[in-house]
Deep mutational scan, measured.
Amino acid sequence: KEEVSSHTSPETGIWVTLGSEVFDVTEFVDLHPGGPSKLMLAAGGPLEPFWALYAVHNQSHVRELLAQYKIGEL
């Protein structure tokens, strides 16, 4: 988790977690339908608090999209 928390910018890579999985979403930030700034709120940390607020994320196609960016496990 400490390593994930240091990845919060395009220069270091933008990493997020979901459960025990780690994702590098650097290439996706500008494609995020809610805008880059919304995704950047989660940079370096867990997606769960944000996904709890926005139910649109609880769809299979969203998880499939995220899976493409998986880089490891906590």
Rank of each mutant, 00 (worst) to 15 (best):
K1P: 04
K1Q: 02
E2G: 11
E2F: 15
E2C: 04
E3W: 12
E3N: 13
E3Y: 11
E3Q: 13
V4W: 06
V4G: 03
V4C: 09
S5N: 14
S5F: 14
S5T: 14
S6H: 15
S6V: 15
S6F: 15
H7R: 09
H7L: 04
H7T: 05
H7W: 01
T8P: 09
S9G: 14
P10H: 13
P10E: 12
P10C: 10
P10G: 14
P10N: 12
E11I: 10
E11G: 14
E11Q: 10
E11T: 10
E11H: 11
E11A: 13
T12P: 09
T12C: 07
T12E: 13
T12N: 14
G13Y: 02
G13K: 04
I14V: 10
I14M: 10
I14H: 05
W15I: 13
V16F: 06
V16E: 06
V16W: 00
T17M: 13
T17G: 05
T17W: 15
T17V: 04
L18P: 00
L18W: 11
L18M: 13
L18V: 07
L18T: 06
G19V: 05
G19L: 05
S20E: 13
S20H: 12
S20N: 15
S20L: 13
S20G: 13
E21H: 13
V22F: 09
F23A: 02
F23W: 00
F23N: 00
D24T: 01
D24V: 02
D24Y: 01
V25F: 03
T26Q: 03
T26I: 02
E27C: 08
E27R: 11
E27A: 11
E27S: 11
E27N: 12
F28L: 01
V29E: 03
V29H: 00
D30S: 10
D30A: 09
D30W: 12
D30C: 06
D30F: 08
D30I: 05
D30G: 08
L31F: 08
L31Y: 08
L31I: 13
H32W: 08
H32A: 00
P33D: 00
P33W: 01
P33F: 02
P33I: 01
P33V: 01
G34Q: 01
G34K: 06
G34S: 01
G35R: 01
G35M: 04
G35W: 03
P36D: 07
S37V: 07
S37K: 14
K38L: 09
K38E: 02
L39D: 02
L39F: 08
L39E: 07
M40G: 00
M40H: 07
M40F: 04
M40Y: 04
L41M: 12
L41G: 06
A42W: 03
A42E: 00
A42G: 02
A43T: 07
A43E: 04
A43F: 13
A43P: 02
G44V: 09
G44I: 10
G44M: 01
G44S: 06
G44W: 10
G45Q: 08
G45T: 05
G45W: 02
G45K: 14
L47Y: 08
L47D: 05
L47I: 06
E48N: 02
E48C: 05
E48A: 11
P49I: 04
P49Q: 09
P49C: 06
P49V: 05
F50Q: 08
F50K: 06
F50E: 07
F50D: 01
F50G: 05
F50R: 05
W51V: 00
A52M: 09
A52R: 13
A52D: 15
A52Y: 04
A52V: 03
L53G: 13
L53E: 15
L53F: 04
Y54R: 07
A55K: 15
A55Q: 15
A55N: 15
A55W: 04
V56H: 13
V56Q: 07
V56L: 05
H57I: 01
H57D: 03
H57P: 01
H57S: 06
H57Q: 02
N58I: 05
Q59I: 02
S60D: 10
S60E: 13
S60C: 07
V62Q: 04
V62N: 00
V62R: 05
R63E: 09
R63K: 13
E64P: 05
E64W: 04
L65P: 01
L65K: 11
L65A: 10
L66Q: 02
L66F: 15
L66T: 01
A67E: 14
A67K: 12
A67W: 09
A67P: 03
Q68I: 05
Q68H: 09
Q68L: 10
Q68K: 14
Y69C: 12
Y69T: 05
Y69S: 11
Y69E: 06
K70F: 06
K70L: 08
I71F: 06
I71N: 07
G72K: 03
G72A: 14
G72D: 07
L74T: 12
L74W: 15
L74Q: 08
L74D: 06
L74I: 14
